[in-house]
Design a protein around this nucleic acid. Sequence first.
DNA 1: AGCACGCCGACT
DNA 2: GTCGGCGTGCTC
Length: 733
Amino acid sequence: VDESASVADTPPLCALVAVHRPGGEAYSYAVPPALVGSLTAGDAVEVPYGRQLVGGFVLAVGLPPPVDVTLKPISRRRDDLRLPAHLLELIRWGAGYYRCHLGTFLAGAVPAPVREGGHIAVERLLSPVAGFDASVLTPTQRRAWEQLAAAAPATAAAHARTAEVSAGVIAKLVAAGALHEDIREVGRESLFAPRIERHPLTDEQRTAITAIKGGGAQTWLLHGVTGSGKTLVYQELAEAVITAGRQVLVLLPEIALTPQLAARFRGRFPRLAVWHSDFSDSERMAQWREVSAGRVDLVIGTRSALFAPLPDIGLIVVDEEHDGSFKQDRDPRYHARDLAVVYAKQLGVPLVLGTATPSVETYRNAKDGRYRVVSLRQRPAGGCLPTATIIDMAAECRRQGRRAVLAKELVEGLAGVRARGEQAIVLLNRRGWSPLVECLSCGHTMRCSACAVGLTYHRHDGCVRCHYCGHSEALPQRCPACGKPDLATRGMGSEQLESRLRDDVPGLRTLRLDADTVAARAGHERILAAFAAGEADCLVGTQMVAKGLDFPRVTLVGVVQADRGLNIPDFRAAERSFQLLAQVAGRAGRGERPGQVLVQAYDTEHPALTCALGQRLRSFYERELELRREYGYPPYAGLVRVLWSGPETDAVQVAALDGVERLRAAAGHDAVVLGPAPATLALLKNQVRWQALVKAPSRGAVQTILDRLAANGWLPRPRNLHVAVDVDPLQTS
DNA sequence: AGCACGCCGACT
DNA sequence: GTCGGCGTGCTC
């Protein structure tokens, strides 16, 4: 018997590997003899892929090899990286549910420097070189250069999309010296010192803790009014888990909130890792190592922290669960709170969803008994909930005899706060000086040339800019349409509000917190730290001022144009306004002195306002559920939004029409497909946008429809066109 | 994402 | 003919 023949006849052991390449799916490889028996799912490997060697993760070992392919062997297994089996399971589930390639989902879950391995990998950003002589370029390159000459630093792929050329052209521009390659590094330190606090527990807190500790693996809604001490409950639960040798995951909606809360946690749990997407590569590498080695007890971070490789998770907490930031608005389009529900179930551990204003979906799950509820109705240490007043601005205008911007009551309230040495927060959810610039002669309004939106005037630099693409130009002296010097600004943003407050309330020291001041003053933390230190009487800003801040000296909260947001054509508009108002109102009276909330609006009777301020939560949710049921929206429906975008209207429209036909075929009689139609934002960064919305009776029905769509070849993606499929979208218009 | 392949126009 | 530029398609 010929020995070599018998070896050749034995089919090689086959492993399925997800390679780190976009769009790439899983590929089969032969397991080399040295790894037979020890290779398992979750192992990081290097495999030959085309002409190159790339990284990947083993998904499964021992599957039958595919026919008609000659397997290449796995090159090597990395000994410095492994994905815990439970994390791999979560990622596979997520990729299936959100219809995202496994490679893309892995890229979203495992930071690039970790995936790429030990080398000091860096993000390569390309920025245009000022004054570059374009005459040496070919025509295509020159066209691309003209598109990019004023572009912000971005990756090669992003530039290719902007200029509508292939990646090769961008590479040539780099080689020619038109684009300069840069290395990005982000480092930051917390300005908040660890805060050590040992408050005694209230009865309500104790009851909640006992219930959750004894409840085993289930999902809890911790419904605590703002300032009721949810954090202390999280900490007590975490301590029990950590004492038992397991780890805790705490998710927050925004990076901006992590330093404050992390400081409170760090005082009690020194082996803590803060986890968000804004760390430098080396920081991320170090964190990944520490966490996966089990040297970290508690990870606290934004949605991507869900994928921290903790070896033995014993508890997951999602704070401010209602917040829309848990949904990622690019691929992979996962919702971290929803994935946390699945993860906790897979792990068999308790999940705590904490909020004062649950999402309508969570409220319904709690109401139907799928989640258990524990409530914190009181503020500890005698703190009481603020009193709220809705000011009718129509009446205020009549009283003042002109178009009123600030009600007398608010101005007087702020003067009182200043006189007593207290603090105030004023919210106007719109940044800039004026959202509208128009010509008084011809009625022309300044619009963005690349997006279907108006330009906002910013007084600090005299520019009008687009809040979607960032385009910015000096406010012209004359109307671009008729040439008359009659351009005027209309409407108010946070920049103007701050100025008005300073004018109307003598001596009022203000600080502004919005995207502009955060960028200019190097950070959210710096502004908040200044406010905490008492450097201002009044914090003015956009929705940033509403979230999770805890300043005991704040006794007055003002809201200007509280009913703005209610007219947005989105079925969640009322829910969002309700949450924003209730949250910002909760910033008042967190210390010993009682709080007051003054809300300016025209639509003073809207339930989103009256319920948020009148502590009538149940009535708001019941009404909202009724509307959702009647019109067939979540939680009584499952939605998928499909968005086609590209540079040419015709091509986008054709693809959308064709796509919708396929969607209808897959949906059959099980669902309605609305559209295709231009999206509300019909043009963004020179990309025409068309969309369709699939409304199925449930999220399960959506999956069935998408399975059928996949079986029929999914949605075609003509070149130069982008198709985004968003399962459980938060934005539907 | 790379990389090779093949088409096409410009130039020898 | 040949060469460089550029879009397309494949990678177990």
